[in-house]
Amino acid sequence: MCHQTVSLVARHLEANGIPTVVFAAARDIVEHVGVPRLVHNDFPLGNPCGEPYNVEQQREILEYGFKLLERAFVPRTTIQTPFRWSKGDAWKDLILTPEQPFQSEESEKAWLERKEKYRKLKAEGRV
């Protein structure tokens, strides 16, 4: 969901004269919304700018974004970085599957409470 929100903001800035680059892991969501420039890292959700504490990799990934800003000449330009998750690709088969709940019980409970609150505020016309 935060990929959709960030993409909508990028589109708005770009339409108003500010060039943008989005760094993201969930490539399909960002491309579905449609943004001018995307640097896609094929990493688990949470690390669109590189693996934790891998400063050199994070630096290289940012540089891909700078090059994209300099070289893209049409919107919807995506760069796929060459990096692979250091612990292998097993996470791809497990993310968002019944075998591996995305949220902890605690955070899912909080999420459901938030949804309920949203419904209530919406019914009251406050959102």
């Binding site: 969901m1 935060c2 990493f43 688990p44 959700l45 949470g46 690390n47 669109p48 700018c49 590189g50 693996e51 934790p52 504490y53 400063v55 994070q58 998750w85 612990k87 996470w91 497990l94 993310i95 591996q100 995305f102 902890s104």
Partner: peptide
Amino acid sequence: GFDRHATTLEDVGA
């Protein structure tokens, strides 16, 4: 909203 099974948000640089 991240893959808590695969990684962490401990390093904001990520």
